[in-house]
Amino acid sequence: MVSLLIGMLVGAALFAAGMYYNPFTGHGSVSPLAVLNEKHLDVTYTAVPGDTILYTDNGESTVNTHPDRVVDLWEPAIVDTRIAVVLLKNSRGNAVGLGIKFSTDSEQTALINSQALVNSAWHIYLPGQGTLLVDQVENYWPYLREIVVPARWSSGDSWKGSFFGIMTQGPGALGTARVSGGTGKFAGMNSEAVESLTARAYSAIDGPVSMHGSLTIILPKATIETE
């Protein structure tokens, strides 16, 4: 009986190891929009909660909310939701807009398929240009596997290295996000976008230390002509 139990534990551990080290799953580092020849809008933002304008979650994660006295999202219906309000910057590092990101763990998550999915929506305002909504499904499995788990296993409770990954996995057929224009030159626009994450340092105690995200939004011809 004891050998059966030990065998079952070893089997479960082998399964977990196989899932974690699965060589058939990698992470995308080439944007599906890279092959398109259309004009696009690139913005970056900090993914370090302490550097955002506001970050909040259920208050029980390792990541500290910001500012300190922001309300927690503790109610049952929103306990798996996070909100980040960030300044959006252009490639020169100048602030060009405001982004509000709502993220919720997805029920489509299937760890057996290396999918830790998150449904997220960006409400974006770019002064002088307009507003838009970006709806996407993101896969955080590579982020968990290559950053979070190694940081927890590390004796220093931290991870340092170089990570770049395309986070967007849908809902577009090519693994792109769906963009809906609101006002200004984006009014009536339907387009695609991709979000990526670049990380250099992560703490298992405090969360992201050096990390930023990028959003690439395709601008259809009609949108460019209104500029």
């Binding site: 059966l4 479960a12 899932m19 029920e107 998550t109 760890l111």
Partner: peptide, 25 residues
Amino acid sequence: TFISGILLGLVGAGVLTYSVPAVDL
């Protein structure tokens, strides 16, 4: 018995991971 346990553990963990939702909103 040990080998049977390993197989049971592998199958059990697989069935559990596949059938129990990781996120239940």
